[in-house]
Amino acid sequence: MMRKTLIEFISRIRDFLLKKFKAYDDKLPYIIIAIIALIIVVSSINLFIELTDTLKTDMLASMDDKITEYVISFRTPALTDFFVFMTKVGDFYGYLIVLTIYFLISRLVFKRWKYVLQSTLVLILASASNMMLKRFINRARPGIEHMVSVETLSYPSGHAMSAMAFYGFLIYLCTRFRINKFLKTGLIAMLAFIILSIGISRIYLGVHFPSDIAGGYIAGLIWVFFCILIFNLIEIFRSDPKT
């Protein structure tokens, strides 16, 4: 009797959900993406807090030293030139050039500015919040030789955070574009390579601890999925005939 009642209850819940979602077929993709984004945002915030809490531990200091020593052991003139270039790609003028190219492509190919505005907003939010986090956490730079000049504090890495936020959001947009799958795969791989290279460049050039890069990546990822959540909620409300 109990088993039969439970089966009937589950069936009613299933029929109710199917009936509800059937009326929102066009919104379902946005709803699913928003839910996934919310889960990732909450998980990433928790991970960032846990990492920040371990900054002054001996274990993390030891890991930072070992990883840094390993990365700088590969220093060569050619590799130094490459990582100096990549770190410039993650600077203000680097993003200005990339945004200009991105704007022209969006204007000429996609005939719309929405994606440029969204990507720029993600970058601005990540950059502004990074300055606040640096002042609040107040971690000094590594004591080793700096191969490029730096003026701000260390944690989280602004280059890593901005790269993950901006190029990470572009990866998300690429997954939504209706383009050749080989071109799409190539673009995503290139953007992932840029994110990784900018982060490694900061360790290689001696201006960041590896944990700074990890913290920057996590914080940047939070902004990526937070903005995905907001933008998809906007699409849900915009497509609602009652609003």
Rank of each mutant, 00 (worst) to 15 (best):
27 K>N: 11
28 L>G: 00
29 P>G: 03
29 P>L: 01
30 Y>H: 09
30 Y>N: 05
30 Y>M: 03
31 I>L: 02
31 I>Y: 00
32 I>W: 01
35 I>M: 10
37 A>N: 07
39 I>N: 09
40 I>L: 15
41 V>W: 13
42 V>H: 05
42 V>Q: 11
43 S>V: 12
44 S>C: 13
44 S>F: 15
46 N>S: 15
46 N>E: 14
47 L>E: 10
47 L>Q: 13
48 F>S: 13
49 I>G: 07
49 I>C: 06
50 E>R: 13
53 D>Q: 13
54 T>F: 06
55 L>Q: 09
55 L>W: 05
58 D>N: 05
59 M>Q: 04
60 L>E: 03
60 L>H: 02
61 A>T: 02
61 A>L: 05
61 A>S: 09
62 S>L: 05
62 S>V: 00
63 M>R: 02
63 M>A: 09
64 D>R: 01
65 D>K: 11
65 D>I: 02
66 K>P: 00
67 I>S: 09
68 T>N: 10
68 T>D: 07
71 V>R: 10
72 I>P: 04
73 S>F: 00
74 F>L: 08
76 T>F: 03
77 P>R: 00
78 A>V: 12
78 A>E: 14
78 A>T: 10
79 L>Y: 03
79 L>P: 03
80 T>H: 06
81 D>M: 07
81 D>W: 04
83 F>G: 09
84 V>Q: 09
85 F>T: 11
89 V>L: 14
90 G>C: 09
90 G>L: 03
91 D>G: 10
92 F>C: 09
93 Y>L: 15
93 Y>M: 15
94 G>D: 14
95 Y>C: 09
95 Y>G: 07
96 L>G: 10
96 L>P: 01
98 V>W: 14
98 V>N: 08
100 T>E: 04
101 I>P: 01
101 I>H: 07
101 I>D: 04
102 Y>Q: 04
102 Y>G: 05
103 F>N: 02
104 L>I: 10
104 L>H: 02
105 I>Q: 04
106 S>K: 05
106 S>H: 08
108 L>Y: 09
110 F>G: 06
111 K>W: 03
111 K>R: 14
111 K>H: 14
111 K>S: 13
115 Y>C: 11
115 Y>Q: 13
117 L>Y: 10
118 Q>A: 11
119 S>W: 01
121 L>W: 10
123 L>T: 11
123 L>G: 12
124 I>D: 08
